[in-house]
């Protein structure tokens, strides 16, 4: 009886985990499949699990610069520009947030900058639903002439990401024993050099993981982007959103193609920093 249960349990557990993996991955699978289907196969019954005649037409349409007309609606498609814009805004925004946030996390962890409740105060910014700050931002940005500019959107992304960066980096900085820094200081190492030779190498994984985390947030952010930009700056989520409107119908194929393209940079990045991910996401529970 005992032995039977011992054999059965891992089986059940793996079956459940497999089922859950299937549930979470299915939408992604469906998106990728749809991006290779002709218009006729997008919504058929019974559903087609694989495209019967795989095609790249959706990608061609989406990636061709300039104006093009579709069977299902008319869209001005400049997907290359939104990809570029998204990269610029999310990339610079996340980078700035990580630089500023980790500096703040370090100074709070080591010197108590800002007082005991400072990180909580900053976290409370995150408790506010974005919709609440979106409209006031429009008013500010009109005055500051930041509406529909890269600078404007980057600033907003830095501000909204800082709480995440600070809280994640706090965990990573606190994991570096103070004694390491003290030992270095006793050897005559300057504070800046301590940061470079001791703190930076030991928090590298944390920095990379934090960057990826906020990059994904910014990469897929829609509400603030759509409120604060118009024609000059247009990120991927905005472009994606344009394929669903009452006037122009539903372009599932190109939409799926954009979705697939939008997922790629994040996946590639994930592969590049794989070795940091395990260490970073385990928050030091696993030691190298």
């Amino acid at each position: 009886m005992r032995r039977g249960r011992r054999k059965l349990f891992p089986l059940v557990r793996h079956a459940l985990l497999l089922a859950w993996t299937a549930v979470t991955l299915f939408p992604i699978y469906w998106m990728v499949m749809t991006s290779f289907k002709h218009a006729g196969e997008w919504v058929t019954w019974p559903p087609r699990w694989f495209p019967h005649e795989p095609t790249l037409v959706n990608y061609v349409k989406v990636l061709t610069p300039g104006t093009s007309t579709f069977e299902l609606g008319r869209q001005t498609l400049k997907i290359l520009k939104p990809i570029g814009d998204s990269l610029v805004v999310s990339g610079i925004g996340s980078l700035l947030a990580v630089v500023l946030g980790s500096a703040l996390a370090y100074s709070w962890a080591r010197f108590g900058t800002g007082g005991r409740n400072y990180p909580y105060n900053i976290l409370s910014i995150r408790m506010v639903p974005p919709i609440v700050i979106a409209v006031p931002f429009v008013v500010y940005f009109v005055t500051l002439r930041l509406l529909d500019t890269y600078t404007g959107l980057i600033l907003v992304y830095v501000a909204t990401c800082l709480p995440y960066v600070i809280w994640m980096m706090l965990a990573f900085v606190e994991e570096v024993p103070v004694e390491l820094e003290r030992a270095a200081r006793l050897m005559g190492v300057s504070r800046l050099r301590v940061l470079r030779s001791v703190v930076l190498p030991l928090t590298a994984s944390g920095l990379v993981v934090t960057f990826l985390f906020v990059f994904i947030l910014n990469w897929s952010e829609l509400l603030l982007a759509i409120t604060l930009t118009n024609t000059e700056v247009s990120t991927l989520p905005i472009t994606l959103n344009k394929f669903q409107s009452a006037n122009e119908g539903r372009d599932y194929g190109p939409q799926a193609a954009i979705g697939t393209l939008a997922t790629l940079p994040v996946v590639v990045m994930g592969f590049l920093i794989q070795k940091h991910l395990l260490r970073g996401f385990s928050f030091g529970l696993l030691r190298k």
Binding site: P177, L180, R182, A183, R185, L186, G188, V189, S190, V198
Partner: peptide, 20 residues
């Protein structure tokens, strides 16, 4: 004086070896 200026050697409780 700064710690580094005092010509001291210190061994810590945690030893403080640089793990990297």
């Amino acid at each position: 004086w700064e710690p580094g200026e005092r010509n001291l050697g210190m061994v810590f409780q945690s030893l403080a070896l640089f793990p990297h």
